[in-house]
């Protein structure tokens, strides 16, 4: 697979000396570099890297294609992982709602359109980044505050029961995989 890096490569500020960098290609052919500590936050990517046997020497020559995640989401994800790569492990919360406060930087990062946020969650789920998942879910959970069920239906893009029934009917009318 040959990819022309026609889109800008996201350069990431690196504070520690001699970082190992990996190259990731999104579904729409955007290329990202990400440091070793950051990429470890994604269980999926790190498993892939270990399985492919990528090392400091050959990492940049072997870009990793991620076909389920587009460039926009990947950019957010790379930013998040670089930001949090040296984080200490989060404490066990006995009451997440009470004890956990979303840092301002992350709140800003996740201040995006609701549908974009749901897209980001799907990408995060695929890449298995627990911390980002927790943060996104917190933002989604917080959205429900002080809203009526009607407002929530719109915010969360949930069809009404009637729409759901109609969808189900049209799905059962159309021939299924078995004909």
């Amino acid at each position: 697979m040959s990819v022309e890096p026609e889109v800008p490569i996201v350069q990431v500020e690196e504070v520690r000396e001699n970082p190992v960098l990996y190259k990731i290609i999104s579904s729409d052919n955007h290329v990202f570099t990400i440091s070793e500590h950051a990429v470890k936050l994604s269980k999926t990517l790190w498993d892939l890297i270990t399985n492919l046997g990528l090392t400091a020497e050959n990492a940049l020559d072997n870009p990793i294609p991620v076909e389920n995640v587009n460039g926009k989401n990947m950019e957010t994800i790379v930013q998040f992982c670089e930001r949090h790569k040296y984080d200490e492990e989060e404490p066990e919360y006995t009451n997440y709602i009470r004890e956990f406060v979303l840092p301002e930087w992350d709140r800003q990062l996740l201040s995006i359109d609701n549908e974009e946020l749901f897209q980001l969650i799907l990408a995060t789920n695929y890449l298995d980044i627990q911390k980002l998942m927790d943060y996104c879910c917190r933002v989604i959970g917080d959205m429900a505050k002080d809203k009526t069920p009607e407002e929530l239906r719109i915010i969360y893009g949930i069809p009404t029961d009637a729409e759901d029934d109609a969808l189900e009917r049209s799905a059962s009318d159309s021939p299924g995989p078995s004909g």
């Binding site: 549908e115 749901f118 799907l122």
Partner: peptide, 13 residues
């Protein structure tokens, strides 16, 4: 559906 919403989230999410 055209739009991705809460209903499209996997169970674990």
């Amino acid at each position: 559906r055209q739009k991705v919403g809460l209903a499209d989230m996997p169970e674990v999410v």
